[in-house]
């Protein structure tokens, strides 16, 4: 296969970026998208250039490092698929592929296709945990949890923190990411104790670090590689408003 690649190049955070064109021949359909980029980089290096920087680590869809904006869609054309799981057989031979970093005011570009997602860290640090110290846990089976609820919590917990939801959102909202964590913990008895406090802190931090508001267009769910459902956003809103109500009653 052969492709025309239009790739965003940007030397560093303060530099002005631009698209760079490459023609890549002899791509095999079996290659993953990142292997295709490795192949491109090999050619760039061998001809004395500077390789395209992009983030990746596990290359199996679980670490959340990778994340490219491919042909106008976070993680590319295949639903429920991370960039590293994407394969070249999904692209038409001889087509043009446009590759960009996440574009979002909360995630600035560091270099080429690498962005700064540390705003996510700040939100988690604001309350995405259970306040229990090591050593104080009780026997695990002392608290039975309804299977349906526990499975549902699992569905929320599979978020990989990639940031596609933010990149997909015209408002740069992080609602899907935040709601997944809030809901997971609020559903489980262990996390319920602090649910109200948690949601307030995380939402406040989310606003503070520059994520936008949610206008319910649900592009996030469509582009989330892990299929995190927008129902969790509704669930978080309920948590949030009930926390507010409790407060005003106090």
């Amino acid at each position: 296969m052969e492709f025309k690649l239009k790739i965003w190049r940007q030397k560093n955070a303060s530099a002005k970026g631009k698209f760079e064109n490459h023609t890549l021949k002899n791509v095999s359909a079996e290659m993953s998208f990142l292997q295709m980029l490795d192949y491109l980089n090999q050619q760039i290096i061998e001809s004395g250039g500077e390789p395209v920087h992009f983030e990746h680590d596990c290359r199996e869809g679980i670490c959340g490092s990778c994340g490219l904006y491919i042909n106008g869609r976070p993680h590319g054309p295949v639903t429920h698929t991370t960039t590293c799981e994407l394969h070249m057989r999904e692209f038409e031979d001889n087509s043009t592929i446009v590759i960009e970093p996440w574009r979002s005011k909360a995630f600035s570009v560091i270099k080429d296709l690498v962005v700064d997602r540390s705003a996510f860290e700040k939100v988690i640090r604001a309350g995405g945990f259970v306040n229990v110290n090591t050593g104080s846990a009780q026997e695990a089976n002392n608290i039975p949890i309804n299977k349906k609820i526990s499975d549902r919590a699992f569905d929320a917990a599979v978020c990989i923190g990639c940031g596609a939801c933010v990149a997909a959102c015209k408002n740069s909202s992080a609602m899907l990411f935040v709601s997944a964590k809030v809901s997971q913990m609020a559903m489980l008895p262990q996390g319920k104790v602090e649910a109200k406090d948690r949601v307030e802190k995380m939402v406040a931090k989310m606003d503070e670090v520059g994520f936008g508001f949610c206008s319910n267009t649900y592009g996030c769910e469509y582009d989330c590689p892990k299929g995190i459902s927008v129902e969790f956003i509704a669930q978080m809103n309920r948590e949030f408003f009930s926390a507010r109500v409790c407060k005003s009653k106090r």
Binding site: A137, I143, I145, K147, S150, A157
Partner: peptide, 15 residues
């Protein structure tokens, strides 16, 4: 379990 790790459970709610 205390930290909200959603391990698989049976229908009785046990791990």
């Amino acid at each position: 379990a205390a930290h909200g790790v959603p391990f698989a459970r049976d229908y009785g709610g046990m791990l």
